[in-house]
Amino acid sequence: MPLMPSPADDPRTLVSTQWLAQHLRDPDLRILDASWYLPGSARDAKAEYAAAHIPGARFFDIDELSDQRSTLPHMAPPIEKFMSRLRAMGVGDGHQVVVYDGSGLFSAARVWWLFRLMGKMDVAVLDGGLPKWQAEGHETEDLPPVIRDRHMTVQRQNHLVRDVTQVAHAAKLGQAEVIDARGAARFAGEAPEPRPGLRAGHIPGARNVPYDSVLNPGGTMKDPAALRAVFEAAGVDLSKPAITSCGSGVTAAVLALALERIGHRNWSLYDGSWAEWGMYEDLPVETGPAQPRP
């Protein structure tokens, strides 16, 4: 039987493994392995890519392709660096990009957000990632892809990112919903942060939507109706602008992708996230679960 794409396939947000299998040989398709793992996970993303990746995939190094001038982890790179690195990977204008990772749906969303930040819309996350691809028996390879240079133009979309000053202002005035993707224990300040030296807790007034709460078992994203229910159950007012946050701006992008999937277009990502907020003693911190609204 021919492979049938999922009715939820959207080449600007999320595509299924069936969709990718059907389009794998398209000349203008570019696949990126954006695997990245938390410190202490004992997983090596580059080694895993070298051992097995989806045919034609390039490795997107989230830590290297970042703003190396910043002391914060993997901050969004300057436009010029993004363009030059992607061009060297043979990714450019006119390409449909599909990003995946080795966890299912985790760090790939960060690269989806980076492309959006740079004004590139034809980019989607592979739903379920490499684990689902391999579980279904699709092919992998261990050979590096043949690279052909491709021109890339970029137009940064500044409304998709927020800095610490903007987040502090929005949180204080209640102008936006700050949505934290970390687990409940870290959000409440009951579990230590994986990065040393950070305070425990969360941005005052933030809502907690752990990134895995928007996923099904197996690492695929829930359908839009279920996603909306997750946000509403966490007390998120979806009529307000949303600012997503997490530990270092990776899983915050999973929530951004989920918001985009439910049609909530007025969102941005706090790039510094808790790696920044938790470092500064003069910024307020709350502990405990999110407080109910008066």
Rank of each mutant, 00 (worst) to 15 (best):
Y100E: 06
R58Q: 14
G174L: 10
L227E: 06
R207H: 13
D271L: 08
I203F: 11
L3R: 14
R148A: 15
M279Q: 12
G119F: 09
K132F: 00
Y280E: 15
G235E: 06
H159I: 07
Q155T: 13
Q291V: 13
F115T: 06
G119V: 05
R195L: 01
M221L: 13
L238W: 06
P284F: 08
L227Y: 01
Q18T: 14
I147Q: 10
D282R: 14
L105Y: 06
L105T: 12
P284Q: 08
Y270H: 12
P11G: 02
L14Q: 08
V91W: 10
D149Y: 12
A290R: 02
A234T: 06
R85T: 02
A225Y: 03
P27G: 14
V99H: 01
Y100G: 05
L160V: 07
P224Y: 01
W277M: 04
P192C: 07
G174H: 06
R195E: 04
L38Y: 04
I262K: 05
P7E: 00
L114C: 13
L257I: 05
D163M: 04
S245Q: 02
F187E: 13
L283M: 08
E141S: 11
D212I: 13
L283V: 07
A109L: 07
K46P: 15
E141Y: 11
R265H: 14
L238D: 05
R110T: 09
E139C: 08
A252M: 09
P78F: 03
W19S: 05
Q175G: 12
Y211Q: 12
R162S: 09
E141W: 14
H151V: 08
K120I: 15
P289Y: 02
V99C: 00
Q166I: 00
F60G: 01
V125L: 03
L143K: 12
P217F: 08
A229T: 10
V99Y: 00
S248Q: 07
E286T: 09
T140R: 08
R156N: 04
M75C: 00
I31W: 11
G263T: 05
L255M: 03
M221D: 02
V15G: 07
A8T: 04
K81R: 13
I203E: 02
S103P: 09
V98C: 03
G235H: 11
